[in-house]
């Protein structure tokens, strides 16, 4: 019994989304165990042990888990979590990749991207690009859940003193192997963790023009995002896409520049506290969700904005 939370990390540091998952776990109720699976991930386990409200940390440190390959991680989580009341992970691309595999191995259904906990078996989750919120009740003995981080506050990263137990379970399924990765490097805050996000759309016209947004972002300490159209056109890389099928953000301030406001884009940002839209088309649907709308040509407005802040 108890709740198993899978930690999101890059082998050296714990990712913030895990703290939001802990809050969801606390709302469910029960002893919380964090599982850290990786390679050379001791520092992650130590950080996890300090999170407020965590009873125990299990650390599976093995080369088989270095790249979070779904087949290996799912086999591990299914074995470690099979007697847990709940298994939780953040709905990141890591969690979304392996968790349904865990559910299938345990022969239970998965509840994807919960945004609220009503009780230990009842949860709220958005469907249809967030145009409806479903309340679902699950009767499986182990509830396998991915958690949308924006639905829950972050638990305190300090104050806990959980024990750390090394876990000598090696699942090397040999079904897939890691070939390589191209990770975006940026000194700006991470999109899903930033308190201010400024995003550009097709209206930006090309990748060079995104410089205008980077300048504003650097003055505000903001992250930069994009619409699907801007990513598809090759202006910016895929990891910047905000939306139903990209990243979900809910910062204090979201500035949409040259973005029309399609349902799929709104699904990724409409829970932001304050929304600003800059668009030359006063009929653009983005204005229906904007707290402050500015009908203007972005090539005039954005440089002026940079000067005035």
């Amino acid at each position: 019994m108890g709740i198993l939370v899978y930690a999101e990390h890059d082998n050296s540091s714990l990712k913030g989304a895990t703290l939001n998952v802990i809050t969801a776990a606390k709302a469910i109720g029960g002893d919380i165990t964090i599982l850290v699976a990786g390679s050379g991930c001791g520092a992650v386990a130590e950080a996890a042990a300090k999170i407020d409200g965590v009873a125990k940390v299990l650390c599976a440190d093995n080369a088989a888990y270095e790249h979070q390959l779904a087949e290996n991680v799912a086999a591990l989580v299914a074995e470690v979590g099979k007697d847990s009341s709940h298994i939780l992970v953040a709905a990141t691309t890591t969690g979304k990749n392996f968790m349904p595999r865990v559910a299938a191995l345990l022969d239970v259904e998965q509840i994807s991207e919960i945004i609220a906990v009503d009780s230990a078996d009842t949860f709220k989750r958005p469907i249809f690009a967030g145009n409806a919120i479903a309340t679902v009740q699950n009767s499986d003995s182990t509830k396998v859940i991915t958690v949308r981080a924006t639905g829950f506050d972050a638990a305190s990263a300090e104050g806990g003193s959980a024990s750390i137990e090394a876990l000598d379970v090696v699942k090397d399924e040999g079904k897939s192997s890691f070939v390589g990765e191209e990770l975006a490097k940026s000194d700006r805050p991470e999109l899903t963790a930033a308190s201010i996000v400024i995003s550009g759309g097709r209206g930006m016209q090309n990748g060079e023009n995104f410089e205008m947004l980077y300048k504003v972002a650097d003055k505000l300490g903001a992250a930069v995002g994009a619409s699907r159209a801007a990513v598809d056109a090759g202006f910016v890389p895929n990891d910047m896409q905000v939306g139903q099928t990209g990243k979900i953000v809910a910062p204090d301030l979201y500035v949409a520049v040259g973005i029309s406001g399609a349902i799929q884009h709104l699904a990724g940002m409409k829970d932001s506290k304050v929304i600003v839209a800059i668009n030359k088309d006063e009929e653009a649907p983005i204005f229906q969700v904007a707290d402050y709308g500015l009908v203007a040509d972005l090539f005039d407005a954005v440089p002026e904005l940079e000067k005035l802040i």
């Binding site: 409806a132 479903a134 309340t135 009740q137 699950n138 929304i275 969700v289 707290d291 709308g293």
Partner: peptide, 20 residues
């Protein structure tokens, strides 16, 4: 299915904003 949908509600409405 072991998952039952108890209800489906519209999302919270955003209050109307202004044009600057």
């Amino acid at each position: 299915s072991s998952t039952k949908t108890l209800k489906v509600e519209p999302p919270a409405e955003r209050s109307a904003g202004i044009k600057v």
